[in-house]
Design a binder for these strands. Structure first.
Lengths: 140, 140
DNA sequence: ACAAATTTGCAACTTAGTTGCAAATGTATC
DNA sequence: GATACATTTGCAACTAAGTTGCAAATTTGT
């Protein structure tokens, strides 16, 4: 299982034409296993004894962003959150739901958000992201 | 005109049962005149010679947030952006559009975003915010 | 004008993220 | 697997954004 994620991470990096380094494999592995957007320090925490400098983690995320493998999530928090660009179309990312009671964030990957049409008063819309707030099943 | 904004700001503060202080009037005035979400330092810049400590500005925004007069905008920037809760319904804020070419952000106040229905797999959705990306009229 | 409640400013601090550069690692080629 | 070149890494020092605690100042209701 563990090895599988590693292999998958390596394949992904290779096909994105990125140098396949220990740090990148480790970060990508964590993102592959994650079910929600993570902050730099959360990623660092999940690295366990494989320690990488925070700047390395930031730069890895930056590289993954550049090739479109990773997206930033827009949450009501000070730190940036990153996640694999999964369950996303070219024009729309899956919505993120944050519970106003417990504060936890969930990816609503199966939810269909109506898309806005391509142009509006001269604005050419390429991408759409939705943030939802309310009560999660545990708090409702 | 100037005086009108002041009066308006005072009235708003009064009806929100907030202490009507010079700092709050000044910040609210700026938000009333603004056509897009502003950062703390942008507000400070627009205060001109009326100087207030940044913490005062932050706390003012915090007070206005608490009574629902102000919202945070979700943009791809490090600093938080605040705007008056205008052109917003209880359940949905107007979308923010950021141009990927010039970087400017616009409020698309007249745009109707389809609302997600109330509940989804146990998630009770109260509020929805949309972020759009693409090319603005000037860059398209 | 007074007392109580609230807000303000300051200085010091935390947290998130960035810079520059030399050392280390990865990749392609022989 | 050694070489040369390109890219990435780690460090230390830094910037930017936002927060804290508290005493002094301001606002409000009476």
């Amino acid at each position: 299982m563990s090895a599988n994620f590693d292999l998958q991470a390596r394949r992904i990096l290779k096909s994105a034409k990125l140098y396949c380094t220990a740090g990148r494999v480790a970060v990508l592995r964590i993102l592959l296993k994650a079910d929600k957007p993570l902050r730099q320090d959360e990623i660092a925490g999940r690295l366990g004894k494989k320690r990488f400098d925070k700047i390395t983690i930031y730069r890895t995320l930056e590289s993954l962003l550049e090739v479109g493998l990773v997206h930033k999530a827009f949450l009501d928090e000070r730190a940036r959150h990153f996640e694999l660009a999964r369950n996303c179309s070219e024009t729309q990312c899956h919505p993120h739901f944050t519970c106003t009671s417990c504060g936890k964030t969930h990816c609503l990957t199966e939810m269909a958000i109506p898309k806005v049409k391509g142009t509006h008063k001269g604005f050419l819309i390429h991408r759409q992201q939705t943030r939802l707030e309310g009560l999660c099943p545990a708090c409702a």
